[in-house]
Simulated scan of single mutants.
Amino acid sequence: MYSPPTDQDDEHRMRREFARSADRLSVTLDGPEIWGWHGRTLSSHAAHPDHGSCWLRMLSAPQDKAGGKIWEGNREAAVLLDDRVHKPALHGTSHDTRDGYAHLAELHSFVSEPVCSSTPVLRQNLHLPSTWWQSLREDLEKVNKTPTERVAVRQEWVDRSVPRFLDLPAPRITEWATAHGDLHAANLTSVTPVLLDWEGFGLAPVGYDAAMLLAYSLLAPGFAGRVREAFPVLATESGRVAQLVVLTELVQSASRGDHPELIPPLRALAAELA
């Protein structure tokens, strides 16, 4: 769980617009508020007269920056993948612009299963049944085969960023597949699993989701080993490329203050893959 925005005016604006979003989508908020990364999103359990138990999530951004991959990801994933993989269904959306900010609210079906971790970085080993891994593999295979024009990773970014953050030559991506785009323990429930938060959905290097799950699990070696067993693609050249791309993303993120404790194992894995 993250914290509200550091600016109190932003915090009050988010709460005010969240209540307006609930009214537009005809839901009653009946749970604690949950803040997202850097206070960029606000969510809560809600009740709808037709859909019943739901999850209301509102994304906010300055008006001139609203749009693009993250802004549209959940909606586009819903069109292509609702009822095909284990993910929350999207019941409706609401968009409003006010005082220079855009607010996108999404009403999802509520998932009662607990997530595997409260944060993206997994710090302790999880002992999950083989059926959990099989379900995850099957869902990711369906995602991989789903055609989309959305792009989650661009070669141009790889060319610039891998030398800068890993001090390694940029790999060439030759195999692409559709990916969830942000696969880590906080976006996976511990029973089915259900895959949450599809903002980053789009084309990426083959093996990208497995590489992301591995990189965020490096502080839990037992689980990381299970990821490698479950996804043999990681041992291929395509998997090596995907891992270098993900490692670059996470080192870049850590350089901005996100999960700096991951930097040593990320760099150690990059050295192994070089």
Rank of each mutant, 00 (worst) to 15 (best):
F223L: 09
E113C: 05
K65S: 11
L90Y: 05
P163C: 14
G257F: 07
N187K: 04
D64Y: 00
L29N: 09
P260G: 07
D182M: 01
T6S: 03
R164G: 04
V121H: 01
R137T: 14
W55T: 02
G222F: 09
R15C: 00
T41Q: 09
S118V: 11
F231V: 05
A46L: 13
A177V: 03
A230M: 09
P5T: 06
F110H: 12
S21C: 06
D50K: 09
R57K: 15
R40K: 11
L29Y: 09
L214P: 09
A22T: 01
V241D: 02
A230V: 09
A215F: 03
A177E: 12
A170Y: 06
W176A: 02
E261F: 06
L59P: 00
Y2D: 15
L244A: 06
F231D: 08
T131V: 01
K142M: 06
D9N: 13
K69V: 14
H103N: 13
G202P: 12
M58D: 03
F18A: 02
Y216N: 12
D96W: 08
V27H: 14
W37G: 11
A215W: 08
S26G: 06
D10L: 14
G202D: 10
G100W: 04
D167C: 13
A78M: 01
W133D: 05
F223T: 15
P169R: 10
D258C: 03
L128S: 07
R13M: 02
R240Q: 12
V227F: 10
A19M: 00
L213F: 07
